[in-house]
């Protein structure tokens, strides 16, 4: 029994590491590499944001996850450049809360969790956010989700693989049947 448990645990751990490592190995150099790393963010925070983004929008059949477009750098960059100034500290406090919640619930850091656990934890965090978030203002997960969703669905793989992107439609058709499985337009 014990042996089986530890084997299962070992397999699970190997799997999750393979998963997290896979996210990192799969990062294309082109997506955000052109952008300087935003000031005020540690590599660990950026990495945590990428894993969170990839948990929100994981790889599914036919399209990669948000981790594949280095979403952490985009979230950090957009928080630093295109958001009200308090957004950076809001997100960073959120990262600390997510990390603390992970240790409380699963006795490990967020990055070390299995994909399913990460997903469960973010859903839990989103729901109980009111008690964790700063007394007033936004839930820290809101700007994280906002920029993750924007960054992913406007990325080339997000727009062209997860969605349908037609840069030059040529015309407008006002009524076309929507078949099950048809995806939404990227723009």
């Amino acid at each position: 029994m014990n042996e089986r448990m530890s084997r299962r645990e070992a397999l699970r751990r190997a799997g999750l590491w393979a998963g997290a490592a896979g996210v990192w190995a799969g990062l294309p150099k082109r997506t955000w590499a052109a952008l300087p790393a935003p000031e005020g963010w540690s590599p660990e925070e950026e990495r945590l944001l990428t894993i969170i983004g990839d948990t929100l929008l994981p790889a599914t059949a036919g399209s990669p996850g948000a981790g594949a477009v280095e979403i952490g750098r985009f979230i950090a960059m957009m928080a630093s450049t295109c958001s009200p100034p308090e957004t950076v500290s809001l997100i960073q406090s959120g990262l600390r809360e997510i990390e603390a919640l992970s240790r409380a619930e699963f006795a490990r850091g967020f990055i070390d969790l299995a994909a399913a656990q990460r997903e469960t934890l973010l859903i839990t965090y989103e729901k109980k956010g009111a008690s964790l978030a700063p007394a007033k203002g936004r839930h820290p997960l809101r700007p994280i989700k906002q920029w993750a969703v924007l960054g992913y669905f406007t990325s080339e793989p997000g727009a062209t693989q997860a969605l349908r992107y037609d840069p030059i439609p040529g015309g407008y058709r006002g009524a076309i049947p929507l078949a099950p499985g048809d995806r939404t337009w990227a723009t």
Binding site: T55, L56, P58, S63, L122, I123, E126, K127, F153, T184
Partner: peptide, 14 residues
Amino acid sequence: PGAGAAFKERLTRP
């Protein structure tokens, strides 16, 4: 609200 494959799937449909 939401996270994960179901959340992503929902956003990819009109």
